[in-house]
């Protein structure tokens, strides 16, 4: 086994996903197969290969430091499910 049910439940929790017992069991099986397949890559010798961080060939895409935002505050708030006095409103979060 490449992955345990506990690990699947932990990852789900980090992603704020709530799995039923059946789902957890099903995904554990599926993820195990995926990891098994990915594991094929371990057979390759990549000691001399630089890790890839980006698949496009562009480098140094930069912008000038100019404040040129034309987005209106009303537009920013337009899709918010809840808002008040110009703020986004969310369920209370205090860490």
């Amino acid at each position: 086994m490449k992955i345990t049910k506990e690990e699947v439940e932990y990852v789900a929790k980090l992603a704020r996903m709530y799995l039923s017992k059946e789902e957890a069991k099903m995904f554990t099986g599926q993820l195990d197969k995926i990891l098994d397949y990915i594991n094929l890559l371990n057979e390759l010798d990549v000691n001399d290969v630089q890790p890839t961080s980006q698949s496009v060939s562009k480098r140094n895409v930069l912008r000038k430091d100019t404040a040129d935002n034309t987005f209106k505050k009303e537009e920013s708030l337009k899709n918010a499910p809840s808002q008040d006095k110009g703020f986004f409103k969310v369920p209370k979060v205090i860490e």
């Binding site: 912008r63 430091d65 100019t66 404040a67 935002n69 987005f71 899709n79």
Partner: peptide, 29 residues
């Protein structure tokens, strides 16, 4: 002390009205 944000053209000015300096990038649209 830049004029605009690190990944978008919104102003970094302090003291503006709430959410005035936002755009689709910093809102994560």
């Amino acid at each position: 002390l830049t004029d605009s944000k690190i990944f978008c053209g919104c102003s970094t000015k302090f003291g503006n009205e709430p959410n005035e300096n936002t755009c689709m990038v910093c809102l994560g649209l």
